[in-house]
């Protein structure tokens, strides 16, 4: 693809050993005038970049934007950028819906859809994922796995555990996964995952992994769920400010790698290790609600296909779908 000038400039600045690139070097490399370069730099400033401009040395990035920057993501993820596979929007109904539209249009997978704001962020069964503007991650990754549906079951868990590992590695966080798809930090919800697949009996044709992460702000859910789950941002939970653009690049790289490992069926060993580390429900007394029953018992272990085994007086139940809450 023909990359835009802003992406090329950001990449040149990020790759320059001392961080400086002169305006004339940019003009030469992009085959445009100095005036055109100034125009692009001005647009980048409007996006939230701050630059040092020093005579004889050129420009240097002083501050990255607080909000997500398409130029930054494209500059740092060339393997996606060269296929025009990163779609960044100011506002979308839902990144999962947009990703599904792109797949239906025949776009090549994998692709990434990110919105700075969602108006109809989707949770399970049409519930809303509160998506306040600015500084959070609302994104979807879309794939065409062509795997048998039976292979798919542990996918959301695997990606959730991968995100837990990622969050712990960036530091100062102790994330825990609540089976099957919520991530808690400090006992409050910080990440939600919703996977949607389109399949027939033999093959999964399309797969969309939607993730919402409260990075810098969390919705106040007190009114929506009095006494229920509360939300927290990663900044609040870690006591520091996470830079959203580098965070997003590292997250996407991690998720794409984890997808690859899953697709190649090489995830089992790491899965087991991560599950032991991040399972919020281990040995806890829980209440599980399915479409037809309420089960009270102890969260025991995981079956290889990802079903949660709950022990109770009448024996064991393998939970494949439903809601699990901690009993108090």
């Amino acid at each position: 693809m023909k990359e835009d000038k802003a992406t090329k400039i950001i990449r040149a600045l990020l790759q320059s050993p001392k961080g400086f690139v002169t305006g004339s070097a940019m003009a030469r490399d992009l085959s445009v005038s100095r005036v055109a370069i100034w125009g692009v730099m001005e647009k980048l400033r409007e996006e939230g970049y701050e630059f040092d401009a020093i005579r004889n040395r050129g420009y240097r990035i002083r501050e990255l934007p607080h909000n997500l920057s398409a130029s930054y993501l494209n500059a740092r993820l060339p393997f996606l950028a060269e296929r025009s596979a990163i779609h960044v929007h100011d506002t979308l109904d839902s990144t999962n819906s947009e990703a599904e539209r792109l797949l239906a249009d025949g776009q090549k997978a994998p692709l990434v859809v990110i919105a700075k704001e969602q108006t109809k962020g989707r949770g399970r069964l049409g519930r809303i994922w509160e998506s306040p503007r600015e500084g959070n991650f609302y994104g979807s990754l879309a794939f065409r796995p062509r795997l048998n549906p039976s292979r798919m079951q542990p996918f959301t868990l695997w990606m959730g555990l991968t995100i837990c590992r990622f969050l712990e590695e960036i530091g100062k966080l102790k994330p825990m996964l609540k089976w099957p798809n919520d991530i808690y930090c400090n006992g409050k919800k910080a990440v939600g995952i919703l996977t949607e697949a389109r399949m027939d009996a033999d093959l999964i044709h399309e797969l969309v992994l939607g993730i919402g992460i409260n990075v810098s702000s969390a919705p106040d859910l007190t009114d929506a769920q009095p006494g229920g789950n509360q939300a927290v941002s990663l900044n609040e939970a870690s006591g520091r400010e996470i830079s959203l653009n580098p965070f997003t690049v590292a997250l996407l790289e991690t998720l794409l790698e984890a997808y690859k490992v899953f697709h190649e069926d090489r995830y089992q060993e790491a899965f087991k290790r991560l599950w032991e580390r991040y399972n919020l429900l281990q040995g806890k007394t829980v209440k599980a609600r399915t479409g037809t029953a309420v089960i009270n018992g102890i969260a025991s272990h995981l079956r290889p296909d990802g079903a949660l085994i709950i022990r109770h007086q009448a024996g064991e139940t393998a939970l494949v779908s439903g809601e699990v809450t901690l009993s108090t």
Binding site: R124, L125, P149, M152, Q153, P154, F155, T156, L157, W179, P180, N181, I193, L194, T195, E196, A197, R198, M199, D200, A201, I204, G306, A307, V320, S321
Partner: peptide, 18 residues
Amino acid sequence: TVVCIIEAMKVMNEIQAE
């Protein structure tokens, strides 16, 4: 045509008629 969803572990699986 999508005829229903089968949900398992928060994967919302849209099932096609075939």
